[in-house]
Simulated scan of single mutants.
Amino acid sequence: MSQVLSLWRTASGLPVVGDRLGKRVFSLLFSQKAPYFATIRPRFVEIRPDYAELVIPKRRGVHNHLGTVHAIALCNGLEAAMGALAEATIPADKRWIPQGMEVTYPAKATSDITCTAETDPGQWTGDDPHVPVRVRGVRDDGTVVIEGVIRLWVTPKPTKK
């Protein structure tokens, strides 16, 4: 089991502090791995192989000139969800790196945004190094505000000599 998935399961299942506080602690720790993620203050909701979900709180620090959540903050949320999914899913003998992201913005982000990343079982274990991760951001009312694909390059880890 990956470090991210192990930490998630530990933090979200802490009986003394409760899963809500445990998830907040995990979210803070995850944001330290790639400090740019801290700019959106992600709140992870769920992480499991082939799926990750987090919330970007709508606050002034992520607003654009319209007072909605900025497009790049949305992309940052999708990338954080994808990174958590990748770490929770990838086999121990492989590594990943993003190759690109294609997204569309079908509606304004006028509330907190729930970002999800998904893959299909088996995508990580085949011979094809190209792994597309489906990503989506949704407003509180269910309206999709951003959706697309983050393309990963997944290759075997170099063998240590």
Results as ranks from 00 to 15, higher is better:
79 E>K: 11
98 P>S: 06
106 P>Q: 08
78 L>M: 11
83 G>D: 11
92 A>Q: 15
101 M>A: 14
69 V>Q: 03
96 W>I: 02
77 G>W: 03
70 H>Q: 09
79 E>D: 11
78 L>V: 10
80 A>P: 06
92 A>Y: 07
69 V>E: 02
81 A>K: 01
104 T>G: 11
95 R>F: 13
86 A>R: 00
78 L>W: 05
100 G>M: 03
97 I>P: 06
92 A>H: 09
103 V>R: 00
82 M>P: 06
102 E>W: 05
93 D>Y: 10
87 E>W: 13
75 C>Y: 12
73 A>Q: 07
96 W>C: 03
71 A>Q: 11
83 G>W: 03
89 T>M: 05
84 A>V: 10
85 L>Q: 05
71 A>Y: 11
72 I>G: 15
96 W>A: 03
99 Q>T: 07
81 A>Y: 01
74 L>C: 12
69 V>F: 04
104 T>N: 10
91 P>H: 02
99 Q>P: 04
82 M>E: 14
75 C>R: 05
100 G>Y: 01
96 W>G: 00
84 A>K: 10
69 V>R: 00
90 I>C: 11
106 P>V: 09
104 T>R: 15
96 W>S: 02
79 E>Q: 13
95 R>A: 07
82 M>D: 04
102 E>I: 09
89 T>N: 06
89 T>P: 05
84 A>P: 08
88 A>S: 15
87 E>D: 08
94 K>W: 00
87 E>I: 10
101 M>L: 08
82 M>L: 15
104 T>H: 10
105 Y>K: 10
99 Q>S: 13
99 Q>N: 13
88 A>G: 12
90 I>M: 04
80 A>M: 11
86 A>W: 01
92 A>I: 09
94 K>E: 00
75 C>W: 09
90 I>Y: 00
70 H>R: 12
78 L>F: 10
81 A>P: 06
70 H>W: 11
103 V>E: 01
